[in-house]
Computed example of a mutant assay.
Amino acid sequence: MGRRRHQVAVVTGASAGVGRATARHLARRGIAVAVLARGRKGLDAAAEDVRAAGGRPLAIEVDMAQYDQVEAAGQRVEDELGPIDLWINNAFSSVFAPFRETRPEEFRRATEVTYLGYVHGTRVALTHMTPRDRGTIVQVGSALAYRGIPLQATYCGAKHAVVGFTESLRCELRHDRSNVKVTMVHLPALNTPQFDWLLSRLPRHAQPVPPIYDPVVAARAIVVAADRPTRREYWVGAPTVLTILGNRIVPGLLDRYLARTGYRSQQTDQPVAPDQPVNLWHPADGVEGRDYGVRGSFTARSHVHSPQAWLARHRVITTAGLAAAAAGVAVWRRR
């Protein structure tokens, strides 16, 4: 399974969090990285990150829910940076609230950004990649793409939809014998700024369900997936693996467990700040003029390494180690 080397990459949702960390990681290869998001402050800072890491940046303000804006952004990347080799769909927005407390217009908006934003990005990427018969699309997903949890119906529904859409698309590309590759990367709970800016109707400040990982763990996995897109999916972090497999085996048990623990585990002991920004309709950095950066409020509790993710990235070494262990056991048994 050979690595693909990219010269021009597009990262959506790149003004903060996972997208920002991924743009930095790619830029260390000295390639051109287009960073797409809504907030100007975060975009300018992300472009400077790319430049400082050795890459060539292009920052474009885009609302991923608006197809015409995404289409124009894709054309601008091609005109100013060159042919797009890699497109990473990562942008999202959501609402922390029980479903019955989420207004219809809020649910629609979150779905348009988080699900249709991926559809729009994929369509634009294919528009440019298909005629050249090459390119890679990475869909950044979540363990919640396979297991819904309380208080996040908007996000879980959109991520589930991304999986179904991507599986259909993959079949069509195979039918067409296309060399354009599509892969997904499903992530665990991460210390990103989303918990400081998503619309929340919870009584206390929202938090990721522990254990919490640093966004660089996600960024490393996304870049590996971009290099090796022939693999259908990457599951990052042991909690992701356990969540997806557990939902396949005992979904009813998880229903009961999450009904009992899901509300408490997604909130801190602190009340929601009355002036907390909301990025559903407008970028949070546009309201505050603040660059949120890569990390959120839970750095002291986050892990910068994932043994499971390392094993996934180094499958040759892992397979060789398992084979050697199996051979050792066979020899021992014969004694």
Results as ranks from 00 to 15, higher is better:
198 L>F: 13
192 T>I: 11
191 N>M: 08
197 W>T: 14
191 N>Y: 08
183 T>R: 02
193 P>Y: 10
192 T>K: 09
193 P>C: 07
180 V>C: 01
179 N>R: 13
212 I>T: 05
204 R>W: 03
185 V>R: 06
210 P>V: 07
210 P>T: 02
205 H>W: 04
206 A>Q: 02
209 V>E: 08
201 R>Q: 01
179 N>E: 11
208 P>C: 04
194 Q>R: 07
209 V>R: 08
194 Q>P: 00
182 V>G: 11
192 T>Q: 10
212 I>L: 09
213 Y>R: 02
202 L>C: 03
185 V>I: 09
186 H>F: 14
197 W>R: 10
198 L>C: 07
196 D>Q: 14
179 N>L: 14
183 T>M: 04
199 L>K: 15
186 H>Q: 13
202 L>Q: 04
183 T>I: 08
193 P>F: 12
209 V>M: 14
198 L>A: 15
200 S>D: 07
201 R>G: 00
210 P>H: 06
211 P>Y: 10
180 V>W: 06
207 Q>K: 12
213 Y>C: 01
188 P>A: 13
212 I>S: 03
182 V>A: 14
182 V>T: 10
183 T>N: 03
201 R>D: 00
210 P>Y: 06
211 P>T: 01
191 N>V: 10
206 A>C: 02
180 V>A: 00
205 H>P: 00
208 P>I: 11
197 W>Y: 10
194 Q>T: 10
205 H>A: 15
209 V>K: 01
183 T>Q: 05
182 V>C: 09
203 P>R: 11
183 T>D: 07
207 Q>R: 15
211 P>H: 05
192 T>R: 14
179 N>P: 03
207 Q>D: 00
182 V>D: 11
181 K>G: 04
195 F>D: 05
190 L>W: 13
211 P>V: 02
201 R>N: 00
211 P>L: 01
197 W>C: 00
213 Y>M: 02
181 K>R: 15
186 H>T: 07
201 R>W: 01
199 L>D: 03
182 V>H: 05
201 R>C: 00
206 A>I: 02
195 F>I: 03
197 W>L: 14
205 H>T: 13
191 N>T: 06
204 R>A: 04
204 R>I: 01
190 L>R: 06
195 F>Y: 15
203 P>Q: 08
213 Y>D: 03
194 Q>I: 15
201 R>V: 00
186 H>W: 13
191 N>Q: 06
196 D>T: 08
185 V>H: 06
188 P>K: 11
199 L>Y: 02
212 I>P: 01
187 L>F: 12
185 V>S: 04
200 S>V: 10
210 P>M: 03
189 A>Y: 11
187 L>R: 10
196 D>A: 12
194 Q>C: 08
193 P>T: 04
184 M>N: 13
199 L>Q: 07
211 P>G: 02
208 P>R: 05
183 T>S: 03
193 P>D: 07
205 H>D: 11
193 P>M: 07
208 P>Y: 12
